[in-house]
Design a protein around this nucleic acid. Structure first.
Lengths: 349, 349
DNA sequence: ATTAGCAGTCTCGCGTTGAGAGTGCTAAAC
DNA sequence: GTTTAGCACTCTCAACGCGAGACTGCTAAT
């Protein structure tokens, strides 16, 4: 299990690069011609044979060109792919787009999704901020009309959750304020576990109904709230040739629509890991059988003290990893920057 | 241009029914055998020839079975399709699901989307409530952390808009309250036009920044806010045989993702029309070229006094219209009912 | 007005075939 | 020992042809 020679690495890198572009099996002759290599196609064939035996390449059928395996992609991403930044003009453009949306935090998320989809040419996912240890700071109850009220829940990290709810009975505004005030006094500073502890005391009081919702929201804040996950670029992805068979396309679409699955994936990968960088998951390795023949490039944003979310892109195995990683890294860093700025007390912009 | 005979109607109705099930061109013999008709296949062939000449049917190629045209579907929907209600047990089931979510208005929307997708087997779209004449009732500014504040805008119809915003400079809580109070005094009861009128007076005052956002939100409330449109059942739709060619699938997906298009479609169809019932748009008739080979079944919910939204399903031309219409009607009625209940002052539920 | 019968037409699936692309191997060259 | 030219071999893919099958349209009889 010695490492690969320099020439083998070169062949693998070029092959991956070419295959990502063309989606067709790459032949030895093609590689020599395209990149003006100073050794012959026969030599390339020999190297390919080695790479195939190592499990980095395979032939779709006897005597066809080679295609990278999952292992091949992984080696490429970990060892061969350079870390190049997004070109400066594009960085500027994206920054400008975020500047336009500087007053509206919710827009940051959809903008991120749109930027990722546009620049990576595959599908994107962006989750909202969430905290591991959510503590209640403050709630407000605002009467809107009839029995409908708006419950605003602010967490100690500055995260805001809003929830329209319908009360069982109509209450006057003063009573709403009183309920909010009581809950604030009683429960401020508590996390989900502590809230559960006092919930029994509130049985059959007027607070019960509102409190139940507060508890549920705080509890949900500990996992990614899947309702507000932003997605974009689905159509991008389906135009890739790997999804020409409708079965594949359907499968991938279901993966994309399945909230539980995505939640699990994101939280496990991004939040349980201590590595803060960009994660690249190529196909269903080990635990991620469900990903099938898709790859996910993902990173978290925010900071550990306040709250974190995740941004990522989902595409076929044959995707432009280098570009994808640069894009995800840039967007996640930008989001982190914007958020920490808006949380701070200084007057930047 | 005389009407169709009873027998011609029967043939058309049965053919549409069979074709929706099988997705294959229907032959005269098949129709006679399946439905035990008391006339022969030759007679059916003659009737088919008439229907084809009228533009209701066509043959994919010479000497194949017949397939309904768009006109054929339209005639079927308008003249032949019976109006049957959703089966009572299913109605009960859906009501129960909504009952579970009775405290959370936002859940109604996603639940509607999910119910529609599940029962119609195609893709669904649900827009949030919106008003044509939005008037400001009341705003609240809640500090969350750093320069981030939550701006809550309540319209006179009870509609609530929330917007997280980032202020240019950090303001203490008292000052936020003061700003909110001043805006409430100044602008309460105004619509977008009137707000625009006073915006010049606020230039270079501390109110300017917040006021700009209030104005924008009210203005946006007059069109469907596309950000919060719920969708579901995409994967359903792509498993239909009409989307086996990737081009078609991509086209439809783009239609589905394109917010501007959908907004336009929904608002024009549902809100400009005075007919409150269920609308069926079959393929790109006249103005709706973009729909291509898809059909849309759509209805509004809510009430004209307060606010309205739209629920609908999007599928291939070959869809189960009868079932679709029943489902959309039931869901839209149920939503209207729930909303008017929650807006009223009585204590139902 | 309806229907049986039949010739005509078009699709679809299947097997064949030939061109083309690319490999693996061997033997020669460096 | 490494590299390379040359070549036989393998496999896919598109094109073609062909026959079976499915329906129709028409005509003539009922």
């Amino acid at each position: 299990m010695a490492g690969l020679t320099e020439r083998q690495k070169l062949v693998l890198a070029l092959l991956v690069r070419d295959y990502v572009d063309t989606a067709e099996p790459i032949s030895s002759g093609r590689l020599v011609a395209n990149y003006h290599l100073d050794f012959s196609s026969a030599t390339v064939r020999n190297e390919m044979a080695v790479l195939e035996q190592r499990g980095f390449l395979l032939q779709p059928y006897t005597s066809a060109g080679r295609v990278p395996t999952k292992e091949g992609y992984r080696y490429f991403v970990q060892q061969l792919m350079g870390e190049n930044e997004l070109p400066a003009p594009i960085q500027e453009m994206i920054r400008h787009q975020f500047y336009q949306a500087r007053h509206d935090v919710d827009d940051w998320l959809s903008l991120s999704a749109s930027v990722l989809a546009q620049h990576s040419k595959v599908a994107s996912i962006v989750t909202p901020l969430h905290t591991e240890k959510a503590r209640l700071k403050h709630i407000a109850l605002i009467s809107t009309r009839g029995r409908q009220v708006l419950l605003v829940i602010i967490l100690n990290n500055g995260e805001v959750h809003q929830q329209t709810m319908v009360l069982d009975e109509l209450l006057p505004r003063e009573q709403l304020n009183a309920i909010a005030e009581q809950i604030n006094l009683l429960a401020s500073g508590m996390d989900a576990k502590e809230l559960e502890g006092i919930s029994s005391k509130l049985q059959d009081t007027p607070l019960e109904e509102v409190f139940a919702v507060v508890y549920r929201v705080i509890k949900q804040a500990e996992v990614i709230s899947s309702g507000d996950v932003y997605r974009d670029g689905l159509a991008n992805m389906l135009s890739e040739p790997e999804f020409s068979e409708p079965e594949k396309a359907k499968q991938t679409l279901e993966l994309f629509e399945d909230r539980g699955m995505m939640d699990d994936l994101l939280s496990r990968t991004v939040f349980e890991s201590d590595a803060p960088g960009v994660h690249v998951i190529i196909g269903g390795e080990d635990t991620w059988e469900q990903l099938g023949d898709c790859s996910l490039i993902i990173a978290r944003y925010g900071s550990k003290e306040y709250a974190m979310g995740a941004v990522g892109i989902l595409g076929p195995l044959r995707m432009a990893y280098s570009r994808g990683v640069s894009t995800v890294r840039f967007v996640s860093d930008l989001m982190s920057e914007l958020i920490s700025e808006s949380m701070s007390n200084e007057n930047l912009i």
